[in-house]
Structure formats: structure tokens, C-alpha cells
């Protein structure tokens, strides 16, 4: 029996809620219990934004997370806010092309991923979230990789259907650590 608690945080417009929905759908496709809780409010593009995702083998009690097993920090305020809350032994993903400091914790595993940079190199600098998503999938067993394309198809809106392939390509780049491996997942 396992439960994985994930917080994804950054600026509005970075695909924070999208990434969360994607993970949630993947969990659902895996037959797990899932919940997705967004921050909501008067936020606009460029404001702060976060969401909490839980993927579990058991029914989920609180959708609100005190100590996440995984944190994806897509900007500096998010790192400052959530680094102290990562569960001991948990994983912290830092968007190192946008964040100018290192993590301070030594009891967690920290991954520095220049997500926006990698996304840019692969053709769309808006998709740093997909690089991060790929990276998370590559180092955790909580979410399987196999159903990610199916999940993207569920989450992506109809008018953005043409972005499916670029999403997959950039996700693959994140998964393989920045080297182009899109062919494997096309």
C-alpha cells in the first residue's frame, strides 16, 4: 500500500495545473485513487499558482497535503515556500534555469532541471512543465510512464490537439535527461 503526495508550484502560465491534471489522470488510468486540488483565487498569468496531487492505493482522506513526497518548484517563491515541507526522504525538483539558489535540505533528494532551457532547445519554451514531468516519471515509480500519452490526450483541450506531439517530444527530453529521445515515445 502506498500513497504519493505531490505539490507542483510556480507562476500562473507555466502549466502547473496542467501537469497536476496529467499526473492525476495517469494515476486514474493506473487504477489508483487520485485527487487534484488547485490553488484558486484572483490569480492571473504571472501570479503564484500551485496544485496538490495525491495518488494512492487506498481511498484518499484529506486532499490537502502537509508534507509532500514530491515537490516540483518552478520558481523561486515556490522553492522558498515548499522546500521546508518536503517529507524526509522525499524528492525536490528545482527549475534551475529560473531559480538562482540551491536547495538547503540534505535529507531529501534534489534534482536540478533546467526545464525551460531544455524545452526551448526542443522547440517550445512554454513547455518547461513537460520537461519536469518527464524527469519526475524517470525517477519515481509512483506514476507509470506507459500511459502518459493517453493521459495527455484526456487532459489537452480539443483546440490544442495539434500540440500533442510537441508535448510528448519535450516530455521525452525531460525523461531522458535532456538528450533527444523523442523517437522512442513518438
Amino acid at each position: 500500500m502506498s500513497t504519493t503526495k505531490i505539490i507542483i508550484a510556480g507562476f500562473g502560465g507555466q502549466g502547473i495545473l496542467f501537469t497536476g491534471k496529467l499526473m492525476t489522470y495517469q494515476g486514474l488510468l493506473d487504477g489508483k485513487y487520485v485527487s487534484w486540488l488547485p490553488s484558486y483565487g484572483p490569480e492571473v498569468r504571472g501570479g503564484t499558482c500551485n496544485c496538490s496531487v495525491i495518488i494512492s492505493d487506498e481511498p484518499i482522506g484529506s486532499p490537502i497535503i502537509d508534507n509532500p513526497d514530491i515537490v516540483i518548484a518552478m520558481n523561486r517563491p515556490s522553492l522558498d515556500k515548499y522546500e521546508p515541507r518536503v517529507a524526509k526522504g522525499g524528492k525536490l525538483f528545482v527549475e534551475s534555469s529560473l531559480i538562482d539558489r540551491k536547495a538547503e535540505r540534505t535529507d531529501i533528494t534534489v534534482y536540478y532541471v533546467p526545464a525551460t532551457e531544455i524545452a526551448n532547445e526542443n522547440g517550445d519554451n512554454r513547455l518547461g512543465n513537460m520537461v519536469m514531468h518527464g524527469k519526475v516519471l524517470s525517477v519515481t515509480d509512483a506514476i507509470s510512464f506507459d500511459n502518459v500519452r493517453q493521459a495527455i490526450e484526456k487532459v489537452i483541450s480539443a483546440r490544442h490537439r495539434d500540440l500533442l506531439d510537441i508535448n510528448m517530444k519535450i516530455l521525452a527530453a525531460g525523461y531522458s535527461g535532456g538528450q533527444a529521445a523523442a523517437s522512442r515515445f513518438a
Binding site: L37, P38, Y40, P63
Partner: peptide
């Protein structure tokens, strides 16, 4: 409440 209204679940 706002939480149950905004959250997603299957």
C-alpha cells in the same frame, strides 16, 4: 465548500 467544489476526483 470551496475545496470540494474546486478539487478533481474520479
Amino acid at each position: 465548500d470551496g475545496t470540494i467544489g474546486q478539487m478533481m476526483e474520479p
